[in-house]
């Protein structure tokens, strides 16, 4: 990760590239496979997944902004401590905000809201990106990362809810006789669904690579 951000520093990507980085090229869930504790723990339903994604996005953006603002005055020796302090602050803020908005969501996410603190995406972004870039750029990148993470969570949450309960956002899809696959909302289901998504991406990747290779071969022929 450090290497990639170094590259960016040299090339100065456009805002659009900065934004898309987290959504596609460096998607935290599917490409970097970071922050997996909440990814697997709370994605038993699409609603939970989106709530968690938005909460994380908020912390990501707010902390990236603040880290970027103070990046020149924080001595490097205490920077990690400073980042942790900043992140923990915003997690506390989001914790209270969710309680104020909806207790049901708060209960569903449980301790995993507070565990956003140790989500490696956030500290990783603060260290690798926000600390080296001006506020707007840091914020744009963080928004992209947050959205990418939310998409990842939603991809998991929707599959698990559809198969595990026959519902999406709490709305029954298949009628009353549908047999839910309970395993999907249990811990093993989380592992399997995420693994299947990764398999799918690996497979698409390998197909693309194979295609590129045959095309190359054709040109050479």
């Amino acid at each position: 990760m450090a290497a990639s951000s170094l590259n960016h520093g040299q090339k100065q990507p456009t805002n659009m590239e900065e934004f898309m980085e987290g959504i596609w090229k460096q998607n935290p869930t599917f490409v970097m496979v970071l922050g997996m504790c909440p990814t697997l723990a709370v994605t038993v339903s699409a609603m939970n997944a989106i709530s968690m994604g938005l909460a994380t996005t908020f912390v990501l953006v707010a902390s990236a902004l603040l880290v970027s603002l103070v990046r020149n005055i924080v001595p490097s020796q205490v920077r990690i401590a400073a980042y942790i302090l900043i992140i923990a602050t915003f997690v506390t803020v989001v914790d209270y905000a969710i309680q104020a908005i909806s207790l049901a969501v708060y209960d569903a996410l449980g301790a995993f809201i507070q565990l956003i603190v140790v989500n490696c995406i956030i500290l990783g972004r603060a260290e690798a990106h926000a600390a080296k870039n001006p506020p707007t750029r840091a914020a744009i990148n963080a928004v992209g990362m947050g959205i990418g993470f939310t998409i990842g969570l939603f991809a998991l949450g929707s599959v698990r809810e559809i198969l595990g309960a026959g519902k999406l956002f709490g709305i029954a899809l298949f009628g009353p006789d549908f047999q839910p696959w309970v395993v999907m909302v249990l811990p093993p289901g989380g592992f399997f669904v995420l693994a299947s998504w990764l398999l799918l991406f690996n497979w698409l990747d390998s197909r693309k690579a194979a295609k590129a290779q045959t095309e190359e071969g054709r040109i050479h022929a």
């Binding site: 603040l66 103070v70 005055i73 924080v74 001595p75 205490v78 401590a81 400073a82 302090l85 900043i86 923990a88 602050t89 915003f90 506390t92 803020v93 209270y96 905000a97 309680q99 104020a100």
Partner: peptide
Amino acid sequence: RTLGILSTICGVLIVSAYQIT
């Protein structure tokens, strides 16, 4: 000094969030 300033900012943020909510 830096950590002190940061802690103050953070403290203010947390307490105001707590009060508002």
